[in-house]
Design a protein around this nucleic acid. Structure first.
Length: 515
RNA sequence: GCCGCGUUCGUCUAGCCCGGUCCAGGACAUCAGGUUCUCAUCCUGAAGAUCAGGGGUUCGAAUCCCCUACGCGGUACCA
């Protein structure tokens, strides 16, 4: 194998799909692992499906997840860049451009002419109505829909005549029947098709644009692509592509068809059943590393008994091997993504976490309405120290800890631990208050608070035989501070709130009980 | 319909190429117990797959061969 060159070739129909992300990732890993090049190409040959801004969006998403490419369209100018022909604000770099198919129309035309000249392809003037009728008849006869080669027998004069009149037409590949097409797929092994089942594929559409099949083969050849790593939905088209390579007399690339990403009902992953856009996941506060990590494990595993679940991009690059890619589709299970994301959440530094979480917090009502002191960096970092192990994703930040930003007003019933009456609760809160009040403000840490409360519990709530009912002290205190039945420990909460606010909340609860 | 690909715990998977060490291992999820009250985290444990079904080959099959079923993908002047 000479130079390894792979490519990710999305269509600009909106956003980067998570399935596309995985295809891009595997291509990227393959290239990096083998010291090859990763090329990005935009397949915008379907003008009807083009979405404004989609190219830019695609590049942004790829960049957001740190999959860097060596050649193709880029968002910034950089060295040796040229302006992309059809997309303002997009630049291209690399020796095999343009990397946008809509800018390569003359190239495809040239190669189609070659095929026409060698009679490996022919012009077809059939109307879509006729084709439809033909297919309906074939369906009625329970035959596979196939072009009947009506235009293959057209005479040279007639073709000239109709061309002169400017009649709309397409160019079709003349598929030689009776052949067996075999190839080795890196994921699936030996695969074979009979050429009898392959239709005379349209190569050039009547609007002058190439179809995927033509553009793909021509570009992969011209861009010296060594390995075509793409989704399984392309498997049935591969023999058509091979026929094209043969018609041109070009060397075949090596193919690897990746299994599909699935909905929980095992159909092809679709928008209907949840988010499929990479940008949506990032917007929800999943780390790009976590998304990559998750998606890498869908359909691939390092094997060899490895039980590692968390991989950085660098680690993936080291251990990735296409031969370990699975053959069957994989269900996209959000639960596991949540778990992986939580692992990353645990590892991130408090500084970074604060920086990442702030934009999400600032959008929340309870945060906006909170007093100035509750929005200080110091306060929020304390809050996050407590919150981080409760989070699955960044957008969850603060949700379970709203009481840190708002006032609380717990009822007597809530304050009661195991049937404690108002008097007992009052007593418990007074003990807590007295003990906490003795801790100097600058020593008001979880550890100090904890030590103080433990000692107080032992002194006041021992119930014979050295047993201590800590709940009698901790439960009322915690509820007084949080207003919740489920929350972090009172020690942590008190630390975040600070001495002053902690004592205030205890006092407030006591006053309410008194009334 | 036709063509192709696939099928190991609910989910992601290891093992399969090079049959025995697999009465099938790990992770997520679930459930139970433990840790300074509740929650979360963490730790421990449990449950969970007759390896889609059937037939072969073999002393022996998740692993090799054949058939069937089911699922998915493709069957466009979409990619």
């Amino acid at each position: 194998m000479s130079d390894i060159r792979v490519r990710f070739a999305p269509s600009p129909t909106g956003y980067l799909h998570v399935g596309g992300l995985r295809t891009a990732l595997y291509n990227y890993l393959f290239a990096r692992k083998h010291g090859g090049k990763f090329i990005l190409r935009i397949e915008d040959t379907d003008r009807a499906r083009y979405v404004e801004g989609a190219v830019e969006n695609l590049l942004k998403s790829l960049r957001a997840v740190n999959l860097t490419w060596d050649e193709g369209p880029f968002l910034e100018e950089g060295e040796g860049a040229t302006k992309s022909a059809n997309y303002p604000g997009i630049f291209e770099r690399g020796g095999c451009g343009p990397y946008v198919q809509s800018a390569r129309l003359e190239i495809y035309r040239k190669y189609v002419d070659m095929l026409l000249l060698e009679k490996r392809a022919y012009r077809c003037f059939c109307s879509s109505e006729r084709l439809e009728r033909m297919r309906a008849e074939q369906a009625a006869d329970k035959k596979a829909p196939m072009y009947d080669r009506h235009c293959l027998s057209l005479g040279v004069e007639e073709i000239e005549e109709r061309l002169k009149r400017g009649e709309k037409h397409v160019v079709r590949l003349k598929v030689e029947h009776g052949k067996k097409i075999e190839f080795r797929d890196l994921v699936r092994g030996k695969i074979s098709f009979s050429s009898d089942t392959i239709d005379d594929q349209v190569l050039l559409k009547s609007d002058g644009f190439p179809t995927y099949h033509l553009a793909n083969v021509v570009d992969d050849h011209l861009m010296n692509i060594s390995h075509v790593i793409r989704g399984e939905e392309w498997l049935p088209s591969t023999p058509k592509h091979i026929l094209l390579y043969e018609a041109f007399g070009w060397q075949l690339p090596i193919f690897a068809h990746l299994p599909l990403l699935l909905n929980p009902d095992r159909t092809k992953l679709s928008k209907r059943q949840g988010d499929v856009a990479v940008e949506d996941y990032l917007a929800k506060g999943y780390f790009e590393e976590a998304l990559i990590n998750f998606v890498a494990l869908l359909g691939w595993n390092p094997g060899q008994g490895s039980t590692q679940e968390i991989f950085s991009l660098e680690e993936l690059t080291k251990v990735f091997d296409v031969s370990h890619v699975h053959k069957a589709g994989a269900v996209f299970d959000l639960k596991k993504l949540d778990w992986i994301n939580a692992q990353y959440l645990k590892k991130i530094s408090p500084e970074d976490l604060y920086g990442k979480v702030l934009p999400y917090l600032e959008k929340k009502d309870f945060f906006q309405a909170a007093p100035e002191t509750c929005r200080s960096e110091e306060y929020l970092k304390k809050m996050l120290a407590v919150d981080r192990e409760r989070l699955n994703k960044l957008s969850d930040a603060g949700e379970a800890l709203r009481f840190l930003f708002t006032q609380v007003d717990p009822s007597e019933e809530m304050l009661s631990w195991k049937g404690m009456g108002a008097k007992e609760i009052m007593f418990s809160l007074r003990i807590a208050e007295e003990n906490l009040a003795q801790i100097p403000e600058e020593e008001f840490t979880s550890e100090k608070i904890s030590a103080s409360l433990m000692a107080a519990a032992e002194k006041n709530f021992s119930s014979g035989e050295g047993k201590v009912d800590r709940g009698k002290l901790l439960w009322p205190l915690r509820v007084a501070l949080t207003g919740l039945e489920k929350s972090p420990s009172p020690m942590e909460v008190a630390w975040v709130l600070g001495k002053e606010e902690t004592l205030r909340r205890i006092d407030q609860a006591r006053q309410k009980l008194q009334a």
